[in-house]
Simulated assay, not measured.
Amino acid sequence: MNVLVFRTNINSAQRVHKAACRLCKLKGICRWSVDLEDCDCVLRIEAEKVEESDVVRTIQRAGLFCEPLEY
Rank of each mutant, 00 (worst) to 15 (best):
C66H: 06
I10N: 08
R57G: 04
L64I: 12
V55A: 00
A19L: 14
V42R: 13
F65G: 01
E46A: 09
R22Y: 09
A47I: 00
C21N: 11
D35K: 08
V50Q: 00
K25R: 15
A19E: 00
Q60Y: 07
C24W: 10
L36A: 07
N11P: 03
D38C: 04
K27M: 07
W32D: 00
T58S: 14
E48N: 15
E46P: 09
S12F: 09
L4Y: 05
A19G: 06
R44H: 05
D38M: 03
N9L: 13
V50M: 02
I29E: 01
F6W: 10
E46V: 13
T8W: 07
R44W: 01
L23A: 03
K49T: 02
L26A: 05
N11V: 06
Q60W: 04
N11M: 08
L23W: 04
L26S: 04
E37K: 15
G28D: 03
A19W: 00
V55M: 01
C21S: 12
K49I: 00
C24N: 10
D35C: 07
D38I: 02
C21P: 02
K25F: 02
L36I: 08
E48S: 12
R57I: 09
E37Q: 15
F6D: 08
V5Y: 00
C21T: 13
K18M: 13
R15L: 09
I59D: 00
G28H: 01
R7V: 15
N9A: 12
D38T: 08
A62P: 05
L43Q: 06
N11G: 13
D54T: 13
D40E: 09
A13C: 11
E48I: 07
R31V: 07
A20E: 12
K27P: 04
I59W: 00
V34F: 01
A20R: 14
R44A: 04
V42E: 06
H17E: 13
C24H: 12
E52Q: 13
K18W: 10
C24S: 12
L64K: 08
D35L: 05
C41R: 15
E51H: 06
V5R: 11
L23R: 01
L36S: 07
S53H: 10
I59V: 15
